[in-house]
Simulated assay, not measured.
Amino acid sequence: MSAAPSVTTLEDEVAHLDAKLAVLRPAQTSARDYALKYLCAAMSTMCASGVTNPFDVIKVRQQLRTQLPGQSANAFWAVGAQMVRAEGPRALTHGFAASMMREFTYSGMRLGTYEFFKDTLNSASNGALTREGVALKVLAATCSSSIGSFIANPTDVVKVRMQAHYPQGRPYHHTAHAFASVFREGAATGVPFGGVRALWRGAEATTARGVILSISQIASYDQVKQSLKAHGVMREGLPLHITASLFAGLCCSVMSSPVDVVKVRLMTDKNRELKGVFHGVRTILVNEGPMAFYKGFSMCWARLGTHTIVSFLIFEELRKLVGIAPV
């Protein structure tokens, strides 16, 4: 009769200790584990990008429109329907190959090396940056996303170019042709390293977006998971992964949309009408108003929210498959 309460108490104690150990687990991780984390991150985000590519195309088309905010013609269903009617269903797959290349480098880096930077910064600070603290997560997300965003900028430029609308017909035959065209376009300006500069056009906005996105997505996912487990609200498993990823998807959509709009405008600005990030922000603000920075937000949320959920669910399952602890 007296055994039942002690069993229940023991289970509660084990669950509580498990949550604490998950938060305070040691940082010793092998190079093999870091490599596996990168591959798991790249594979999961590539799957997510494949699912959300149609949303991404519609979002880019919305962000490139310059009519006044609130006009129904810019609604995602109107843009999507117009695309299918005018260009066929395959228009929703534009930029797919470049998107896969981008995910492997950019998202693989920002998500796959996040824990490497967490471990490194925690060790370098002799524990001053605690694993349960927000500061460590923010700094780790900043480091991983800054590097990944800059390296992957050319794939982002080509992806956006291939997803944009061209009334006179698409100028790019395939992904390799788009890379070459952008390079030649920059080289033709006569500016030193013009071709390389063209491929890295908008890198400032890309990096800023990557940092904001990663802090609001990866760090928030990590923090929500940690808090729910530490307070005994939820245990490690699918329901916890879904809950944390839903919160992270909304958070990163709200935070990254303005920078994303500026980034897309810069990357598709063939005539160099925008002189840089700050000039782009000012031009959009003056000509279209502050709400222009949230053009395509519904598609941004649909894409990023779905992308976040799919990415983290697959990421966690792949980690389990290869024997790596959850995030």
Rank of each mutant, 00 (worst) to 15 (best):
L321M: 14
Q168E: 12
L64T: 10
C40R: 03
T175V: 14
Y38H: 05
L285F: 11
V196F: 04
P89W: 02
V51C: 15
K225D: 00
V14C: 08
V281P: 05
H307K: 06
R235K: 13
G202P: 08
P171R: 02
I324E: 05
L321Q: 09
V57H: 07
T308Q: 00
Q163L: 05
L10N: 03
I242M: 06
F278H: 10
R303L: 11
A302T: 05
C143I: 03
A219F: 03
E204S: 14
K20Y: 06
V322C: 12
G108R: 15
S44V: 04
T243L: 10
K229T: 01
C40A: 15
Q223S: 06
A27V: 10
R65K: 13
V84I: 14
D119V: 08
V224W: 01
F150C: 12
G50Q: 04
A97N: 04
A219P: 05
W200I: 01
C251P: 04
K137W: 03
I147L: 13
Q226D: 00
G276A: 12
F55E: 06
E185Q: 15
P258W: 00
V327E: 08
T113E: 01
R25E: 04
T29E: 14
T45V: 07
G296Q: 13
T9G: 09
S311K: 03
A31K: 09
E204D: 10
G210V: 08
L92N: 01
K295F: 09
C300P: 00
M1N: 15
G88W: 03
S6W: 05
F183W: 12
A302M: 14
D119M: 11
S125W: 01
L68E: 07
L228Q: 03
V262G: 10
F278I: 10
Q71T: 00
Q82M: 01
G305F: 00
K225Y: 00
Y172V: 06
I218E: 05
G133R: 00
A198Q: 10
H16A: 11
K20R: 12
Q28C: 03
V182W: 03
D33N: 11
M100C: 11
V264Q: 14
V327I: 02
G202S: 06
V160R: 03
V7Y: 02
S298K: 07
A164Y: 04
C252H: 09
A97C: 05
F293M: 13
G323E: 12
